[in-house]
Amino acid sequence: MPDKQVTGKRLSGRTVLATVLILIVIPATMMLGILVLNDRKYYFISLLIVLYTMIPFAMVFEKRKPQARELIVIAVLTAIAVAGRGAFFMLPQFKPVVAIVIIAGVSLGAEAGFLVGAVTGFVSNFFFGQGPWTPWQMFCFGIIGFIAGILFEKGLLKKTKLSLCVFGGLATLLIYGGIINIGSLMMFTSQFSWQALLATYISGFWFDMVHAIATVVFLFFISQPMIEKLDRIKIKYGLIEK
């Protein structure tokens, strides 16, 4: 198959640009917004984050004119994540989204990981209701998939159960929990205070813990079969880009 397919192991200029945007520009905007704008303007930080995260990825992705096969594999993983979130709707915070996003990042690359995460956050809220929390969820899911992809490319994250579970648990607790709590605080507070942030973290701790445990449980059970299947599809249909 001569087509350029799902992005493989390659730290291209695009990935570097995306890394810079995600790891430097977005936190800088957050800090700038927190320091310069006052009162309700916190809200707009979250809107800016959506722009920052979506625009470069969307632009790069669209400009690349992705093949149907690549699109559809991303869509399948997103649909599985959305359906999974729906299946465990009764149990609050017990959702497999982060697990599937990490698997996507590891087997399809950082960019695909980000897209699966962000689109899952967006689409699942068509079923559960859009709101001011949507941008934050999109960002959190997306960045976890992106980091998983980068770490795997760098060889710091292995496809083993243990490695994935440890990363998944920590990423959910620290990255997802860490960011989403700031988000929920920003939505209704005027003055940023460490006390209030700490209180938000403490009140949200068990939710984040349940979420992290859910991610570990799902990664423990589904990571190996899922990765195996994705690898099989990649070999069978020549989706690997060398």
């Binding site: 559809i72 399948v76 997103t78 689109v119 689409v123």
Partner: peptide, 18 residues
């Protein structure tokens, strides 16, 4: 955003199908 919109509509179709 043609590609992303396509992903979006495919996902919305896939969920009930799955």
């Amino acid at each position: 955003l043609p590609a992303l919109s396509l992903i979006l509509s495919m996902v919305l179709r896939f969920v009930p199908r799955y």
